[in-house]
Write a protein that binds this DNA or RNA. Structure first.
Lengths: 208, 208, 208, 208
DNA sequence: AATGAATGAGGCTTCATTCAT
DNA sequence: GATGAATGAAGCCTCATTCAT
């Protein structure tokens, strides 16, 4: 499943190090001008080595995009997992999870933005792999919701679980994608609180 | 504000006709392979005229993207406005609005997808203009919410209005962006009902 | 069978004209430095147009090689056919044919040399097509031999016909391939006469 | 005259061994894809050592081609010399020589093919040296012819000697270069016999 | 107004060669 | 002596744009 990008260089340590440089450089450039407007030479330069060296560690420009997306997902997931790893109980578990997720997205705004904007340019197979990561993310959130439901602190029928998970995920993306609007009106804290309030109580309309 | 694209041709009728052909052709191609991977030659061919003629009606490839985005927004807004133009009252007004919006998005899935994925490649000024359209859309939704609130059928404090509007908008996008996941699990009708339920009542947790 | 090279340009007249320029320029360069050491830009320049224009008339560098080989074969064959088209009778028919063939090869030395040295770099399919031309050439010579045999002026059993045709063909190539040796020792006339003598009488060894 | 390729390594035994590996690997690759399409990296790998090591034993890629051509010539000549070293007398001496030569070429088809196709890519000086080997080969054959003539078993005037030698040589090459045609129609034995027959008697035309 | 041939800057990638370890 | 990572010149090709007809 994990499509490992072939390299002409043998030393795994070196591969890791160089690819980290490369991803870091590429992200910076992709954020600035997007994947298509960034040249391989620019990536090499920004990464601190020559174009020849770049191609010792990848086969094509698309490989770089893949490495970038993979790296970003990995980091988002790791950070999220780290924050979810608490012993919160009750409704707090969900609240903290949402807050943690929004915080992670906030901290990695540019990266997340790039990934969601450029992933579509991945070759089919690589795209599938990356989308799979998105599924995993969804499942992590679903898991939290289900646990809260099991504890009885929220009432949510089965179909809703998946939907709510997606909603939360997308509200995270929204924080970056619509930042030019949203971040003008809300601090991250306010945004988080409001979304949680909305999530738990809805718009609280008169009972029908 | 409206950045009108200059044309070498004078006859406005003709301009309108040719640009419609052009947008139609371009959308088809952008959906298939994205903006960057589509060539101007292909667009000309798909539009039914020559590359020379294409450049009689635009100055640059980016102009086409602008026309495309503009056309899509225009259509989404028009359709939505058409559907909102009812005399629904009470909570129904909001429900119907959301349903109508989702339906419009559903009917124009590919176009919406393309627009949100490629708009980032617009030159700054054009991007601003397009984002302005997004603001207008948000305001249309906000308006509905505010009216419901005024009627007293929902209780929503001021800060929430904007947020909820954004949420609804983004839940529409989600229907296209995450279709590979969401549309596997929900019909449009179910999706709509569930999102409305969620919007109004939240996950309905125990009162604290 | 005839693999016609696709062109972006429509006008057949123009295609013919530009490709003639191209082939002429390419032959000059291939003679000088070989196919692999000649760049597409050099070919464009030598042909009198830009690299962009070059690629309006071909898809790849290999296409040029194909056009070159095809053009050379075509010319050799046409010239040969022209010379063979006489009403010589008897042994003279064969003698004149060989002389004519050698003359053609002599006149097109560089081209012939290039073709035989570089054809191996053609993509498979194109190579097959070119080799087919070689078969046709052989058959033209075989034809002459067979006619002489039918007239009874030479005695040659069936198996020999093909072999002798090949021999003659190859003796033509030899005049170009080994010119650094052969042309030092023989004039074309001497070479022709000697080869004909050898062809007809062998080394004339004592009967066994 | 013999252009010895400089090496950074001193030990002559080692040089010999490594170069043998190298030539063997290179020939295999050249046969498969030609000189220009074979990379030095591939040669190193096929030879069983690293690219760094490769360059300890040569200065440039062309050196490899030179070593390859040299090795092939050497082997052809040695094998031929071995076969010529008999005490055949009379016309048999020539017949056996031709047969032996054809057999050697047959046994080394691929190598011979590569050499004649790629030698043109040698730098000038190296090319001269290799061509000199071709001269030597010719002289070996000339020698046999002259001896037969001296014995009186064939009648061949002076100018013919060189020509016949070249013819024989080229008929050997022909066995490999035109194999796609010739080997379809003749076994090596038949080919040999027919060529000898042709060589000795010509097409045996009616006396004029 | 329409056409499409011409242009050339610039993108991606390869590969012979070097050199520090 | 052996290794293989690093280099960058240079090659092939694309494509947005122009302009003569």
């Amino acid at each position: 499943m994990k499509k490992s990008v072939p390299s002409l260089v043998k030393d795994p340590e070196l591969i890791k190090k160089r690819r980290e440089q490369m991803v870091k450089g590429a992200v910076r450039l992709f954020i600035e001008k997007g994947f298509h407007r960034t040249t391989t030479r620019e990536i090499a330069k920004e990464s601190g080595f020559s174009i020849g060296t770049l191609y010792e560690y990848i086969r094509s420009k698309e490989d770089i995009l893949y490495l970038v997306c993979d790296a970003i997902y990995e980091e988002v997931r790791d950070r999220l997992a780290y924050h979810l790893d608490t012993d919160n109980k009750g409704i707090d578990r969900l609240k903290k999870a949402v807050a943690a997720y929004f915080q992670v997205i906030h901290d990695m705004q540019d990266e997340v933005l790039v990934m969601y904007q450029e992933a579509k340019s991945l070759p089919k197979e690589a795209l599938s792999y990356v989308l799979q990561k998105e599924v995993e993310m969804t499942e992590m959130i679903e898991q939290v919701i289900r646990e809260c439901a099991k504890e009885g602190v929220i009432h949510v029928h089965d179909a809703q679980v998946k939907l709510v998970a997606h909603n939360i995920l997308v509200q995270g993306h929204m924080w970056t994608f619509r930042r030019w609007q949203i971040q003008k009106h809300f601090s991250l804290e306010d945004y988080t609180n409001l979304q949680i309030e909305q999530l738990l109580q809805g718009v609280n309309h008169r009972l029908m």
